[in-house]
Amino acid sequence: MIPTAVTSDPPGVPRLAGRGTPLRERFFRLGLRASLAVGVLFLAGLLTYVVVEGWPRLDAKLWTNFPDIIDPSRAGARSAITGTVWVISLTALYCLPTGVLTAVYLEEYADRDRWWNRAIEINIQNLAAVPSIVYGILGLGVISRGLGFGQTVLTASLTLSLLVLPIVIISSREAIRAVPQSIRQASLSLGATRWQTIRRQVLPAAVPGMATGSILALSRAIGEAAPLLLLGGLTFITFNPTGVHSQFTVLPIQIFNWISQSRAEFTALASAAIVVLLVILLLMNSLAIWLRNHFTHRW
């Protein structure tokens, strides 16, 4: 007979009954939820505030009218909205190909044992952490004055391209690195060249990841005011850009301009413009998340 010690348990109590969740663990979970709540509540508070403030001016005039320094009721953000579209489109045009090609070089071609490649890598990591105002100084000194492009759409988009280029490079590299080595080996073992392997296997598989990172980088660029303010305080522009050499304003600068006005009507306009900017940002970020969830390969 096997001696059984557990038979002494009182009947009715299940033998597998535990001691419940320890107190420490409960506190830990509470702490986790509290930290989550801080972020969400702040965002919700901010959104509520700007929507309530800007509600009277979230109308068609915001889209159709140009800024008006005399009569806030007729003022709109049309030049800022079109300016933002111009600047961000050109920023994407400059920084995406450059960033993706740099990432391809660093991941697929660069010999990591060479000191110059390591130096480039460290530099890119550092550039991603440089404050945006520094890029503004660079844009002002080199692009605006040095190259003589002036206070134009071109200068702004080149400056913002430099600002987000490190982010595009880093996220593209991660997307390229996520493509398993076995895919490259399979392609090469079938007699494909290195370029064919990159072009036909690595890049297509990395596109969703690169797109996600690039959109997040561009949504950072779209909200930047500091470097553009430094380019020359282009705060009162009552026309749409007509080309890359046109003067311009963008939403963050227009918001900055309205906030600094004393009249309450302008503050409402600023809130309305903030809502527009936030909606654009949320849409872009949702697109990024959607791309990531629906097109990223699971290996």
């Binding site: 076995s182 895919i183 296997q201």
Partner: peptide, 14 residues
């Protein structure tokens, strides 16, 4: 590699 192909340990279809 066009003359001498290779099959790997883990199936690695594209």
């Amino acid at each position: 590699r066009r003359r001498i192909g290779m099959v790997f340990q883990k199936p690695n279809p594209f």
